[in-house]
Measured scan of single mutants.
Amino acid sequence: RRRVRAILPYTKVPDTDEISFLKGDMFIVHNELEDGWMWVTNLRTDEQGLIVEDLVEEVG
């Protein structure tokens, strides 16, 4: 499975499927959606939700 790491922190918009995260958080990518969004699991918090790919980098 594809893994990505947050390069910046992010605070979710209330009442959306987004998740908040810290710089350095690792995610497993489940689905890549339109307009650069990804459905992921945050490995630190075990939370699932949407993040935008501009805020993460690939992990080898």
Rank of each mutant, 00 (worst) to 15 (best):
E57L: 07
V29E: 01
R1F: 13
R1Q: 15
V59C: 10
L43S: 06
L43P: 03
G24W: 07
S20D: 08
V40M: 00
I19G: 01
F21S: 01
V56W: 03
L50K: 14
I28A: 08
R3V: 15
K23C: 08
E34G: 15
R5K: 11
D35E: 11
H30N: 07
T41W: 07
N31Y: 15
I7V: 12
D35P: 07
L50A: 10
V52W: 15
F21Y: 08
T45C: 03
N31L: 14
D25Y: 02
P9D: 15
E34C: 09
G36T: 04
L22M: 12
E47R: 06
N42M: 10
V4Q: 03
G49R: 00
E58C: 07
W39C: 08
I19P: 00
G60A: 14
E53V: 14
E58G: 08
T41A: 05
R2D: 05
W39K: 05
E34K: 13
E47L: 07
E57C: 07
R3L: 15
M38H: 03
V4I: 07
T41V: 09
P9H: 12
R2Y: 07
T16I: 03
E58T: 11
Y10G: 02
V52R: 15
F27Y: 00
E18P: 02
I28K: 06
E47C: 07
R2W: 06
T41M: 07
L43K: 04
D17C: 09
V29Q: 01
V4H: 03
W37S: 08
Y10Q: 03
K23P: 10
I28F: 08
G36L: 04
D25C: 03
R44T: 06
N31A: 14
V56P: 00
H30R: 06
I7F: 07
G24P: 00
T45V: 03
L33Q: 10
S20A: 04
H30Q: 08
P9G: 14
D17P: 10
L43M: 12
E53C: 08
D17S: 13
G49V: 01
L55P: 01
E32A: 10
R1I: 15
E58H: 10
E53M: 14
R5A: 06
V40G: 04
W37F: 10
T41D: 02
V4C: 07
L50M: 13
F21H: 02
E47P: 00
E58I: 09
A6W: 02
V40H: 00
M26E: 14
L55K: 11
D46Y: 14
T45E: 02
E32H: 08
L55F: 15
E32D: 12
L22I: 12
V52E: 12
R5Q: 10
G60H: 13
G36V: 03
I28D: 12
R2C: 07
R1G: 13
V4K: 05
R44D: 05
I51P: 00
L50H: 05
L8I: 10
E57H: 07
E32C: 10
T11Q: 12
L55N: 11
M26T: 11
G49Y: 01
K23G: 07
V13Q: 15
G49M: 01
N42I: 03
Y10R: 04
T41E: 08
E53H: 13
I19Q: 01
F21K: 01
L43V: 10
Q48T: 15
V13M: 15
P9K: 08
E53I: 14
T41C: 08
T11N: 12
V59P: 06
P9N: 15
E53N: 13
V13K: 15
R44Q: 05
F21R: 00
T16M: 03
T41R: 08
L50V: 09
H30C: 09
R2E: 05
D54N: 13
V4R: 05
D17N: 13
P14T: 08
Y10W: 07
G24F: 06
L22V: 11
V59S: 07
W37C: 07
E32Y: 09
E58A: 11
E34Y: 11
M26Q: 09
D25F: 02
R5E: 05
Q48L: 09
T41I: 08
V13R: 15
T11Y: 08
E58F: 09
M26A: 06
I51N: 00
L55Y: 15
E47N: 05
G36M: 05
I28P: 00
T45D: 04
E18D: 03
R44A: 06
R44C: 06
M38N: 03
G49H: 01
F27W: 01
V13P: 05
S20G: 05
A6I: 02
L50S: 08
L55R: 09
V52S: 15
P9E: 12
E53A: 14
I19L: 15
A6G: 04
V59E: 08
L22F: 10
G49T: 00
V29K: 02
D54T: 15
L8A: 14
G36R: 09
R1Y: 15
G36A: 05
I19Y: 01
L8P: 00
R44S: 07
V4L: 10
E18L: 05
L22G: 06
R2Q: 06
N42P: 01
D15P: 03
M38L: 15
L22P: 02
F27P: 00
G49N: 01
E58Y: 10
D25A: 02
E18R: 05
E53T: 14
V13D: 09
V4E: 00
T16V: 03
E34P: 13
G24L: 04
V52Q: 15
I28R: 05
Y10T: 02
V13W: 09
L55M: 14
P14H: 09
R3G: 05
G49I: 01
N42F: 02
R44L: 04
Y10A: 03
L33G: 09
K12D: 02
V29W: 02
D54F: 15
T41L: 10
G36Q: 05
Q48G: 05
V59I: 13
R3D: 04
A6T: 02
T11M: 11
L8D: 08
E18T: 07
R1T: 13
K12N: 05
K12Y: 03
G24S: 05
R1S: 15
D25N: 00
V56L: 05
P9A: 14
R3M: 15
E32P: 06
P14K: 11
F27G: 00
R3C: 11
V4F: 09
E32S: 10
K23V: 13
M26K: 06
V59R: 05
W37Y: 13
T11A: 09
V40R: 00
A6S: 08
Q48C: 10
R5P: 01
L50G: 04
D54C: 08
P9S: 13
T16Q: 03
V40T: 04
G24D: 10
G60Q: 14
V29L: 05
P14W: 07
W37V: 07
I28G: 03
D35T: 09
N31S: 15
E32R: 11
D35C: 10
Q48P: 05
D25W: 03
D17L: 15
F27M: 12
T16Y: 02
V56I: 11
W39T: 04
G24V: 02
E18M: 07
E47M: 08
I28E: 13
G36S: 06
L22Q: 13
D15I: 05
E18K: 04
L8C: 11
A6C: 04
M26Y: 13
W39Y: 10
E57S: 07
N31W: 15
M26H: 11
D35W: 11
W37E: 04
R3Q: 12
V29N: 00
D35K: 13
E18G: 04
E47I: 06
R44M: 07
D15L: 11
T16A: 03
K23I: 11
T16D: 02
E53P: 10
N42G: 02
V52P: 15
V59T: 09
V29G: 00
V56E: 00
G60M: 13
L22S: 09
V56D: 00
W37D: 03
T45G: 03
E34M: 12
R2A: 06
I51E: 00
Q48D: 11
L8Y: 13
Q48E: 13
D46M: 15
R2N: 06
N31F: 15
Q48H: 12
F27E: 00
W39H: 06
D35I: 06
I7S: 06
K23S: 10
M38Y: 09
W39L: 08
V13G: 09
N42D: 04
K23F: 08
D46H: 14
I7C: 06
I7W: 06
E58W: 12
V4G: 02
P14F: 08
P9M: 08
R3F: 14
A6K: 00
D17E: 13
I28M: 11
L33W: 11
G36P: 05
R44E: 06
T16L: 03
